[in-house]
Design a protein around this nucleic acid. Structure first.
Lengths: 139, 139
DNA sequence: CTACGTGCAAAAAGTTTGCAATCGC
DNA sequence: GCGATTGCAAACTTTTTGCACGTAG
């Protein structure tokens, strides 16, 4: 077997891990970059992607795939239990939904074997709903 | 208001519409291109995208956003009723699931306003499940 | 000191757009 | 003929990779 290349503790790796751990919602790689640059201004997006990949491999973080949008990443300690997500149609942020409808396998056509499922809600997050009306998205 | 630019019936537009209408599952733009090229060999991918956009706008087709994969498009007549999707982890194809768990709004955190939801199943489609074991994906 | 990690720029993959040529009406 | 539509190529976005330099251990 391979010599199992040893991980090194770098400033950028620490900053990236901190940003993801501190967030209470799944973040985009760009959000991670922006957050981590407060501690390592010269940080490059390539390094963010490389570290996200290694954190995924060692199980520290979790990918949140979304219908019609780029994946977010969240700390695995926040994602220990099976749950789902809510994307705000106003601010585009994604939040956890700590619940699951449960048994859904019976819904699929005959012969199909279900391994897992993803459920995503769309609407207004508490914050954007409070700001009333139909206002714009930040982009 | 604008003069409402009038639509023209071209060979490529007809071919594209036919392919999507004839499919009994949601297709990728590339699948649409391949199918439509049987009738219009010189068809370009840009034209497929432009026509998909205009078909979306006039409501003839429907976008199927998927977590972690590119969107598929399906005929609106096939998608008249609310339903969900199943993506095969072997062949990557997407199929309709003509059912819905129903009331899920109670799952979201306080203050969040749910407008809609997407539910995607993953596993083996009937065909790939029949072919037993854990075989490769076509790509 | 050594090789893992980083920054930069170029490459991939999917989608969009500018522009001149084409073709429906 | 006029203008919508097309094909091609270039631009764009998100993510990945090659390469030379930097740096942790």
């Amino acid at each position: 077997m391979e010599p199992a290349t040893k991980e090194r503790a770098t400033r950028q790796k620490t900053a990236i891990r901190n940003v993801i751990d501190a967030a209470r919602r799944p973040l985009t790689p760009l959000e991670v970059l922006e957050g981590a640059r407060e501690q390592v201004p010269a940080l490059s997006i390539a390094t963010v992607y490389r570290n996200i990949r290694s954190l995924l491999l060692d199980g520290s973080i979790h990918m949140v795939p979304l219908p019609g949008d780029n994946p977010r990443y969240e700390s695995n300690q926040a994602a220990a239990t099976h749950h789902h997500h809510f994307q705000c149609t106003a601010c585009q942020r994604v939040f956890d939904v700590l619940d699951c409808p449960g048994d859904l396998k019976h819904m699929t056509p005959k012969g199909f074997v279900v391994e897992r499922h993803e459920l995503t809600f769309y609407g207004r997050c508490a914050e954007c709903a409070r700001k009333a009306g139909g206002r714009s998205r930040p982009s």
